[in-house]
């Protein structure tokens, strides 16, 4: 059937397929063109840097979320993790180093020391919480929507308890602002970090067994089990990596704003899901790729930037984001059906 029609109007088919397969790139390019037309400062150095930093934060979350969605799960706790990770890490660092007489927090809420330990602990704590999400998911057989929703509340509650609701200042912590603000050849270091992580994940998924494990776990769990794959392990891994990504995003966020807030990152779990969906990852699992998610995070951040440059009121912004999500999801579904 399919071969008949394609031979008749093959030329049209090929170009249509080209557009369909590269839809995200095309949207990205269109956005760049629109940006240049609408605002003279769009291509300015500071503006591009600001876009890249945001892309790094949202992109990291989206990469983690995408992995979780590829194994047919969902992680609603990443936003809350962005606050809990740093808050718990600082509290723990204070406790650990208080024995050696080093003061970590002075003047009530100025963090002044222990940066390295804090960074390590942020990543470690986030990874452990992710793994915990995964373990509860597979062992207690609770849907991840519920597990991570619960975790989201637990984490934000614990963030409040640990911080007492106060913000922590990192302005007097040496080196704390480098991740969020330093540039290498005009490119934010955090964006380079994000690219490195993103490319690493893409390569691992494509060129090692891990990719087959993840895609088969989400694509047809029974088939994976029949092939002897420990799907539970890979689900837990996906949650763990999502945790690490949330931790890394939290580090960039806190470094950029040189502070830690109990409310930071709230709502970001939904943005990360939105990006993953725009990038072509589906809720049914096993479908889509990380490259799409990375492009989608750039698309979203550039769009937000353009909208704020032209001065559109937030109401319209949210409507536009909503329409893009619905549009992207239907476009992906449509192109799959007609493939």
């Amino acid at each position: 059937m399919a071969s008949d029609t394609s031979s008749i109007n093959g030329g049209y088919r090929v170009s249509a397929k080209l557009i369909k397969d590269n839809m995200l790139i095309i949207i990205l390019l269109l956005e760049l063109i629109i940006g240049v037309i609408l605002s003279p400062v769009f291509l300015g150095k500071t503006n591009i840097q600001s876009i890249l930093i945001n892309t790094a934060i949202f992109g990291l979350l989206a990469v983690g979320q995408s992995l979780v969605m590829l194994v047919k799960e969902i992680d609603l706790s990443v936003g809350a993790m962005m606050a809990f990770g740093p808050i718990a890490a600082i509290a723990l660092t204070e406790k650990i180093l208080s024995g050696s007489g080093t003061e970590i927090i002075v003047g009530g809420n100025y963090v002044v020391d222990g940066l390295l330990l804090i960074v390590i602990l942020v990543l470690l704590i986030s990874a452990l919480i992710g793994i915990l999400n995964g373990i509860i998911r597979v062992k207690a057989q609770v849907p991840s929507l519920i597990v991570t929703l619960g975790m989201m509340y637990v984490l934000s509650g614990m963030s409040y308890i640990l911080s007492g609701g106060y913000s922590l200042y990192l302005t007097n912590l040496e080196g704390a602002k480098s991740l969020g603000n330093n540039m290498i050849a005009g490119i934010p270091v955090n964006f380079i970090l994000f690219l490195v992580i993103g490319v690493l994940v893409i390569l691992v998924l494509k060129y090692t067994k891990v990719g087959h494990r993840i895609y088969s776990t989400g694509g047809n769990e029974k088939a994976a089990i029949y092939s002897g794959i420990n799907t539970n392990f890979w689900k837990i891994m996906a949650f763990g990596i999502s945790g690490v990504c949330a931790g890394a995003a939290a580090l960039i966020y806190s470094s950029r704003l040189q502070s830690v807030e109990t409310i930071q990152g709230s709502g970001y779990e939904l943005i990360s899901i939105a990006i993953a969906v725009i990038g072509g990852i589906t809720l049914e699992g096993g479908r889509g790729n990380i490259f799409g998610a990375i492009i989608a995070s750039a698309i979203l951040c550039i769009m937000l930037n353009i909208l704020s440059l032209v001065g559109l009121i937030a109401w319209y912004k949210t409507i536009i984001i909503g329409l893009i999500i619905i549009g992207a999801a239907s476009q992906h579904a449509f192109s799959r059906r007609t493939a």
């Binding site: 090692t208 895609y215 694509g219 047809n220 092939s227 794959i229 096993g286 479908r287």
Partner: peptide, 30 residues
């Protein structure tokens, strides 16, 4: 060969045939 389908729809034929039996160079890279 199972009675029910045990293929992962979104993976290629090679990937399905070699699912969990992948051949690697040096143990890491496929």
């Amino acid at each position: 060969v199972h009675q029910e389908p045990t293929l992962v729809p979104n993976m290629t034929v090679v990937e399905n045939i070699f699912l969990n039996k992948e051949i690697t160079k040096n143990g890491i890279v496929l």
